[in-house]
Design a protein around this nucleic acid. Structure first.
Lengths: 300, 300
DNA sequence: TAAAAATACTCCATAGGTATTTTAT
DNA sequence: ATAAAATACCTATGGAGTATTTTTA
């Protein structure tokens, strides 16, 4: 098999039309270059150069082979450049998973900043529930995912970048709406609407209020936090909403109030998960710290 | 510097997603492949594969590098193919010189056959006088040239492929026109028109008839054999014409006759010259033997 | 004779092999 | 416990150097 070194040597000879000078250009001895060219000619079965003690000419087939060689060497140069470009963070596409109770609230707050800081960064978002995201990250179909903890993620690397509490959202006409805080016990008397099983938000909410009652909307099909809020606005009950979703969910209806759940927290934390030997660790760090900063400063 | 072997190995790992199988595909041990990949990753400064004991995943940057690698390897394959195509004769372009007293008479007789036998062969023709052709061949600007011998061509490879005699061409009204042969001495009395100095045909003609008189048209500028024939047709004298040019030059005017010069010959021979270490020797042989055959069979 | 490439010979770096260890499931 | 990759260690090939010879203008 022909080698890149040989191609390099041949191109140098073509450029210099002189073995000795070509050898100097390649920082090798004349003998090394000479035998390398000879070996290459032997391997290819054709003569590349016509040479005597005065001149070096290129054969017709040699011309073709040298053209191809230059092309190849240029491509190798390009290949060697690829890692350089990779050094700057977020320089190549990533696919990021996110759960439905985080995505719609976190991403609008952070993606504009990502876009501004790294205009060329291509980020694909996949929205799935936690168990599916964990599976996809494990399989390597996702580079990383954002889920809410606690959640079983054995064997994956976890970067928490946000903690938050839950707030009870109720209609202002409810009696409870006058309180500024609420304790877990008081929830018992309320008509609490939560998401279906499978959504970790339900588990976290129930854990936060040390609850094991069945919430009332269990028979509903696929539901979103937004739908629940619409139901609350329609006075069909109350619901628990994580802090990051509050402002967005309440911005529409001024009749709703949010009451802090007065239980020791944080009630859930938000984390980026990835495979432990994922190569783009620096990207994950860049992204999660950027997310963290944006969340902290979003009130500004 | 990264090597083609490394690229090969990396592409194999990408294909198999398994180091052991990739190693088998490359006919090396798992250890060899493993350390080659590790070395490559180290040289490039990036991780290509994310691997544990169960799976091999490709990193984002690895994907880019592998794409480029495949491209490079494909080009190397193309490079290796080039010499194969070169094996068939006359497969790449040649530049051939030819003197003016051969070109217009030889080439129309042989080029159609060349074109038919090797439709893809690209041949450039340069028409110059012998001394210039020899210089161009020596410099490597011509692959070969066709000249008439004898001529000083020290250091060049010579392939004679045709010998011929001279014929005196005269108007049928001349007394000499009744002879079927003519001796050198008889030329003394004729008004002999020859080409200017520089054309070897003049030297060969004069040598053939052991002549050292100055022919009459010495003051004419750039002249061709065709012009001389026109002058002969105009009864301005006679001239000597090599055999290969006869039929073509006489075809126009039926008033001209050709008389064989009855001197020991051959009076000139036609040869292909090239540099001794010219790589396309087989092409020269193919061309000159084809020319030779065509000339011998042209009467058929 | 001089200039350049080819060759002879030696040495060392490294690619590759075998056997073993580490690692993660 | 198993399967896979990494590693340790050894060997041999071939790439590169120095010095010399060959070639040809």
């Amino acid at each position: 098999m022909v080698s890149l070194k040989q191609l390099n040597y041949a191109v140098a000879v073509d450029k210099e039309r002189h073995f000795k000078r070509a050898a100097e250009m390649c920082s090798v001895s004349q003998s090394a270059l000479s035998s390398a060219i000879a070996e290459m000619e032997h391997q290819l079965g054709v003569q590349l150069f016509e040479r005597d003690n005065k001149r070096v000419l290129v054969t017709a087939i040699g011309e073709q082979i040298l053209d191809k060689s230059r092309e190849i060497l240029a491509q190798v140069e390009e290949l060697l450049q690829l890692p350089q470009q990779d050094q700057k963070p977020l320089s190549y596409p990533m696919t990021l998973g996110v759960i439905p109770t985080i995505g719609p609230y976190l991403l609008p707050q952070v993606l504009p900043e990502v876009r501004e800081s790294y205009p060329d960064f291509q980020l694909s978002i996949v929205e799935e529930q936690s168990h599916r995201l964990v599976e996809l990250v494990r399989k390597g179909e996702l580079d990383a995912a954002i889920i809410a903890l606690p959640y079983p993620v054995e064997g994956l690397e976890v970067r928490e970048f946000w903690q938050e509490d839950f707030f009870l959202v109720s209609h202002q006409s409810e009696k409870i709406a006058e309180q500024s805080e609420i304790n877990a016990e008081e929830l018992q008397s309320l008509n609490l609407l939560l998401l279906k099983d499978g959504h970790c938000l339900k588990d976290h909410a129930m854990a936060a209020c040390r609850l094991n009652i069945q919430p009332v909307n269990e028979t509903l099909g696929h539901t979103s936090l937004y739908t629940l809020i619409q139901m609350v606005a329609g006075r069909m009950g109350t619901t628990l909403v994580p802090e990051m979703a509050l402002s967005q969910l309440l911005s529409g209806s001024s009749e709703l109030v949010a009451i802090h759940l007065n239980e020791p927290g944080p009630h859930r934390s938000v984390a980026m998960i990835s495979r432990p030997n994922y190569a783009g660790r620096s990207n994950i760090e860049a992204l999660s710290s950027l997310f963290s900063l944006q969340l902290q400063h979003r009130d500004n």
